[in-house]
Design a protein around this nucleic acid. Structure first.
Lengths: 187, 187
DNA sequence: GTCTATACTTGGATAGAC
DNA sequence: GTCTATCCAAGTATAGAC
């Protein structure tokens, strides 16, 4: 793999574990097996490398979510597939963890990618839920926008609770709970 | 107010905004109007001050949540009161934001407070929801533990989504959505 | 294109005067 | 109790050789 790709991969790993601010060029370079010169040759600096890493995360996420939301034959089963993707629960969400950092939120190039990602996920969930309402699977009084926000939020919050407890079972409880609630909203 | 209290207050504010790692003694001291000597006199170091700040946050949170869960006369209205507490949505949750940081999770003195806090909140929600099931308000096939985890997770995730979008309306959508789902689970 | 050496700043903590 | 001066390590970036 090219040095550039090694750098992006190392940045993705370290940013998942530590976030943006705490991911030092020193450690990224060590993990990538490269020297400082390489990083400053391929990227303008830490921020540009981080942006490339987030972009790569976004590509991967869109592929996975698209796949999950195509599985199953009902709205509820699609949402379940979305919630049940394989995940390293205690490591958390690559995007959600970055949202807390002022250094990310205050940097348009970084926040923009994250904002777009979450907006895209919610839009996809709105489509799935709206289709479920139209097809008669879900109650007609369900608000698709709000329900989609709830599903996406439950997933993000489930990571938070599981990490606080250092116990993935809390994650499972939360997502199973929202899936069960959605089932009670069947028409 | 005593210097010690000023230090705790400044640490609480800065940790809310920046988290633990990025809250430097330098800035805390500047905000508190104190010198380095004061901090190292009252606390063993940054970690001990952070622990005191988190403990103070926990006291405040328990008071607020207890109050919210006592309001209203039904399980759903109590949960709604919990979800609708006044909050500075875009600043996020004082506890949830810390959970992402390895420096917090890997420090038992800090993580313990946070873990206990979330476990306590979930336990209180389980009680409210269980009572709602027993009283006949909520469907008997609802799983109280899972549903409580979902409610707590939706709140945490709502903060994440709103911060990513820099728009509090996403927060409102998510919590209104979970409240509406809970209402469809009425017996 | 990649390396090492270096510069500059900041973080966390300690020492010792007042 | 509180202050200032100081120490040491680490973060980010640049310079310039190969």
């Amino acid at each position: 793999m090219s040095t550039r790709e090694e750098l992006i991969g190392a940045a993705r790993d370290l940013m998942w574990e530590r976030g943006y601010a705490a991911s030092t060029p020193r450690e990224i370079l060590e993990a990538a097996g490269a020297g400082k010169g390489s990083m400053y040759h391929h990227f303008r600096g830490k921020e540009a490398l981080a942006q490339a890493a987030i972009e790569r995360n976004a590509e991967e996420m869109r592929t996975q979510v698209t796949s999950a939301l195509e599985s199953g034959d009902s709205a509820v089963s699609k949402v379940r597939a979305y919630l049940n993707r394989e995940r390293e629960v205690l490591k958390g969400c690559r995007f959600g963890r970055l949202v807390q950092e002022p250094g990310v939120i205050d940097t348009p190039a970084l926040r923009g990618e994250i904002e777009d990602m979450f907006a895209w996920v919610r839009a996809r969930l709105v489509t799935v839920i709206s289709d479920g309402i139209r097809s008669g699977e879900l109650r007609s009084d369900l608000d698709a926008t709000r329900t989609a926000a709830t599903v996406a939020a439950t997933l993000q919050g489930a990571y938070v609770l599981a990490r606080a407890a250092q116990d993935a079972s809390v994650f499972d409880d939360a997502i199973e709970g929202v899936a069960a609630l959605l089932e009670t909203a069947r028409a």
